[in-house]
Design a protein around this nucleic acid. Structure first.
Lengths: 211, 211
DNA sequence: TTTTTTCTACTGGTTTTCTGGTATTTTTTG
DNA sequence: CAAAAAATACCAGAAAACCAGTAGAAAAAA
């Protein structure tokens, strides 16, 4: 069976239907050897400890951790593996975030099977691969440049409670810090996300799935 | 091939991968006969004009129209067909909306293949079917009762501009009405969505995809 | 054509957020 | 360990949002 050099692939996605679809599509290609399929980041990392693979098809939204973090974690430990993100998120910022974290490409889930199999080949050859949709997004987005800013742990926490409708003072009480500190965090949040009031802050945060 | 009575099924989803997954999973079951697969609402309606089917597996987010509307449209014309919603949206409100529009069940895309095939059988037998996840959501939601409230045209408009970060006065100027009126709309919005400030309003609105 | 809903507008007062600064103490990281 | 980043905290005034009502006109539905 190892005719030429088969490409070993693992799938990471928590949707059985998607998983089955990927497997079914990829199995048709003799070049590809699906050696594993996992639904969590943890299971994936466990597997990688004992097995070497060429390509990982990685869904961004997993139950136990977010895909971008998992991506950089994997790339740190196993720099040679190719990670192809497969996701529903069509946000420019999320795509570039993935690439910054070492992904070799980004495909939307509405990608065609051709884009998929060809993408894997290209990724192996060192190319950056994108599905057509993604290319459009990148082309559009590059003009307005929207690098998702990094929020600190505390900022994220404050943001979460703000989104819940809590006021500055009640958040301060909850976190046992001064309201003035909470204000500062809110100010920094607005600055980072380039908005000038809470409404826009929450909207942008929601768009970037920060809350 | 028509051993007993095969169930004719069509798939409606704009993600090739998901489509393939569904097909692959369902083909294993002898009872099911996949007679069509479409990526748009329009193509689906066209097909239905000339063919009778038992079950439609319908994705909620389609390129050309939203699934809930398509569902009620189909049920109006072909009341006997069973529509099973397959979606990523885990919002209580969207689920019940689908059911109100005539769907025979609601499965999340992370449903297992068993849930899928069994669901189709049950739907044919007249049962309402839900994947386990959905049951949980319905159980939780029914206690706190969250029927997505209807917003008026003006309210939606105000909401949109609020989410953009505009203040009451600037919205008033834009719509050429009194700021006091805008205030009233905002108040009604908050009341309807059961929140008590703008932050929560935008969060809930985003969650329900109102903005 | 009634009835209901939506859109409009007001009074008047309270609470919260926003702005534009500055600055010390922890953590984290190179 | 030194430098950078993050978390903490303060002042004070302006701007905006929020609350609790009421109510007439316009539009849509019955």
């Amino acid at each position: 069976m190892n005719d030429i050099q088969q490409i070993s692939v693992i799938l990471v996605d928590d949707h059985p239907v998607v998983m089955e679809g990927l497997r079914s599509l990829l199995e048709k290609n003799e070049m590809l050897d699906i050696v594993g399929a996992f639904t969590t980041g943890k299971a994936t990392l466990n597997f990688l400890e004992n097995h070497e693979v060429n390509v990982i098809l990685l869904d961004i939204s997993l139950p136990d951790r977010n895909g971008t973090a998992l991506c950089s974690e994997i790339k740190e430990k196993y720099p040679r593996v190719c990670i192809l993100a497969i996701s529903n998120h069509d946000e420019h910022s999320i795509i570039t975030e993935m690439l910054r974290n070492g992904a070799s490409g980004y495909l939307l889930k509405n990608a065609s099977s051709k884009e998929l199999t060809e993408g894997i080949q290209q990724a192996i050859e060192g190319e950056l691969v994108f599905s057509d949709e993604v290319k459009k997004i990148l082309a559009k987005g590059s003009s307005s440049a929207k690098p998702l800013p990094k929020l600190t742990r505390r900022e994220k926490e404050v943001l979460k409670w703000v989104a819940e409708g809590m006021t500055t003072t009640s958040i301060a009480e909850k976190l046992i810090i001064s309201p003035l500190t909470v204000e500062t965090h809110r100010r920094n949040l607005m600055q980072k996300l380039k908005v000038n009031n809470t409404a826009a802050l929450i909207r942008v945060a929601a768009k970037h799935e920060l809350i």
